[in-house]
Design a protein around this nucleic acid. Structure first.
Lengths: 123, 123
DNA sequence: TGGGAGAATGTGCATATGAGCAAAGAAGAA
DNA sequence: TTCTTCTTTGCTCATATGCACATTCTCCCA
């Protein structure tokens, strides 16, 4: 937690608390984790995707065209969003013949939605 | 959950499962909640804001200049982000003289970060 | 081995978001 | 009041994101 990382000239005019800064510095989240977290949350940060995730939370497994009907969007648009959700590993795809069925990837997804809804509703 | 909301011509060529669609329709999340959730998660969807929130999770209360030093950004940029976090009620501001101290608004914030980090790290 | 259905992908455009710069508050000190 | 310091806000530009349209790909079946 060397103070060299915060040279005096950066902010010497301000009343920085060097101890607090150092304390946090020792516990900094790795850039890699921050980046992953940011990508994870940005997947949740869109109404269309939230509707898709919520639908999959309600019924476990749905195909693209069901999701398209539910979200009232083109199949193409839904497919785009599903690719994104797949890339970020929030949903899992299972192919059955020409249909592809989607489901939530793990418990974290529904947990995050539940806590988020709690926070959103109590205000 | 009337099927009238999904007229046959929308997707009749596809193999929609009308029961599944109706089932989800009955449990649809209100637009208002979806919108709030989306705004909530979008606040988490940025590396700078995540660093700020994590710092406040580690140390409870920090002023703008501390956060500026920690995130290696201009005071202005940090202030912009803090305003956004305030608007979305993720942080709380307390003025003491000319300093303004920020802290996390409630437990949900750290819970969301914890679960998110779990998800991000196990992959 | 074609043809057709369902899903995925490439491109383009409109909008949203983040950061810096510069200027404007707000609160204490002279 | 006037100056100084810390924070906030307005403006602007560059980048990112979401959607539609058109195309491509994959799989099933005749």
């Amino acid at each position: 937690m060397s103070k060299e990382e915060f040279p005096a000239d950066v902010c010497s005019i301000n009343e920085i608390d060097p101890e607090a800064v150092a304390f946090v510095q020792e516990r900094v989240m790795p850039d890699r984790t921050i980046e992953r977290l940011s990508r994870l949350f940005s997947a949740f940060a869109d109404p269309t995707r939230l509707r898709i995730l919520h639908a999959l939370n309600v019924i476990d497994e749905l195909c693209v065209c069901d999701l398209s009907a539910l979200s009232d969007l083109s199949v193409s648009a839904v497919s785009h969003q599903l690719r994104l959700l797949r890339d970020r590993e929030l949903v899992h795809a299972r192919r059955d013949g020409r249909m592809v069925y989607y489901s939530l990837a793990d418990e974290h997804v529904s947990q995050l939605m539940a806590i988020g809804a709690e926070h959103a509703n109590e205000r």
